[in-house]
Design a protein around this nucleic acid. Structure first.
Lengths: 261, 261
DNA sequence: CGATATTTTGACCCGGCTCAACCCAAGTGG
DNA sequence: CCACTTGGGTTGAGCCGGGTCAAAATATCG
């Protein structure tokens, strides 16, 4: 696990909040320059390697903050070890449970991750006299709630192939908007997750995930130049398989660029 | 559907916010008397019969508010009709999506329901200059998010019997605390849902729900004096079956599955 | 009472899980 | 340079939990 090259690259790539890459999407996006100064003084960065725990389920949660770089998974684990990923967090998403001392789930870095953190108590203090911060946090939490409920439909009602198709669709949409390319055939998704992580997110087993990748590939819906790279060959087919309607505009809630309204 | 007796009983049972039965748990619970007066002036009550739609999925959502009496289900429906209940709301819970014009799911009354409503625009105005209201809404939304994520574990990882046991456990706990009785054997739950509504909540079919009720009954974990009334006979067994931690370890007993063959 | 809705039960089937082997790329050490 | 390990991924055989379809039993209500 001596994978530090990636981390080194992004370490200290910026320092002050005004230069922050997630400045206008994160929880601080409504904050005025003056308010930002307060956050600037209280924040600290921390980097994590893949597999490293950021917050532990059931442990006292003393830090909250935003993902600056990388992908974070939230999971809940049952006593017998069955695990379900209950959230995937990307840059600008908020991690941690303000207004509660114990974390209800754990947060694990899936890729090299940089977090912008606050001590929870300190963050709550700032929250008290920063309506714009609180407003933004409310907005983001409402969006997360919508996303969680969408995911409940997937977990409770969709078949394996529909689950995988829905998942790829979301990642494809995310990749397209981030890279500012059309949401169309040919998108190449670099999966930030192993088959195991995908299975935990979709409520399936690794074997089933792998088999469904096979089905999609065999039908020319995707191609897999590498197990971690998926190319969308037929977006409409993917929509169809996901049980979504390709003709109505697609707004996947999990990764909606949050600063809209 | 002429079930109006119940509604009549609670109609105009109170009028002013200070007399409200959910006064100290709902979104308004942090509001001062002065702030409450503003809410008091803006609110209006509305009653719904079982099966009636309170908010429609995809429709413009022009009202938000709190459940005063009854039980409300939120669902999302797929194009082919598969439906998943994504939330069950009880008195004091908040319904509707502030800060968004279109409802992401629909809300249906399962029992006779009385709502305390606000026009969404008006509510958002009040929210602007009422930090205590916004704070409470944030708190409640965070709690809802935690609950939704818990439910994702149930939907993604639990077996049918675990799902039903978990569900009954939640209702039992709710009933016990509301009636102020010990959370122990003997609790009688009056199910506010049909088998179909339960199935939609648990991500199962009605037949499977019914069969699992049978399994629990046959093993003496519950008794069913009436299909809509469940008496918990063995709470520890229910904990065990739910795959939850009853805090103490439970001795696994031989468990007899459905006695076919 | 009949009539309709809800619940239960039965028989059968299939999608996804389990268990097990195998593949393949990237280390690692001799 | 090759043998060995290790971790992720794929594939196959078989089974079983829960879905489907059908019918009977029971509640609810006019």
């Amino acid at each position: 696990m001596g994978e530090t090259t990636n981390l080194a690259e992004l370490r200290f790539s910026h320092d002050r909040c005004v230069d922050c890459p997630i400045r206008n999407r994160a929880v601080c996006s409504y904050s005025s320059p003056r308010q930002l100064a307060e956050l600037d003084a209280a924040k600290f960065y921390r980097d994590y390697e893949p597999g490293q725990e950021i917050i532990g389920e059931g442990e006292p949660c003393d830090a909250v903050g935003s993902v600056v770089e990388g992908v974070v998974a939230l999971h809940r684990t049952m006593e017998d070890g069955r695990r379900q990923t209950v959230g995937l967090l990307f840059p600008s998403d908020f991690v941690g449970r303000p207004l509660r001392t114990v974390a209800p789930y754990d947060a694990i870095a899936l890729t090299p991750v940089r977090m912008c953190l606050f001590h929870r108590k300190r963050f709550e203090e700032i929250l008290q006299h920063n309506p714009s911060l609180e407003r933004r946090l409310l907005e983001m939490t409402l969006d997360e709630l919508d996303a969680a409920r969408d995911w409940m439909v997937l977990l409770g009602r969709k078949t394996a192939i529909e689950k995988l198709a829905s998942f790829l669709l979301i990642l494809a949409h995310r990749t397209a908007t981030l890279d500012n390319q059309p949401f169309d055939d040919g998108i190449a998704i670099t999966l930030p997750l192993t088959r195991e992580a995908i299975a935990e997110y979709l409520g399936l087993t690794i074997e089933t995930v792998s088999r469904q990748f096979g089905v999609l590939k065999r039908n020319g819906v995707i191609s897999l130049p590498d197990p971690r790279i998926t190319v969308i060959e037929d977006l409409r087919a993917l929509f169809y398989l996901a049980g979504e309607d390709p003709d109505q505009e697609f707004e996947p809630r999990p990764f909606r660029p949050a600063a809209n309204a």
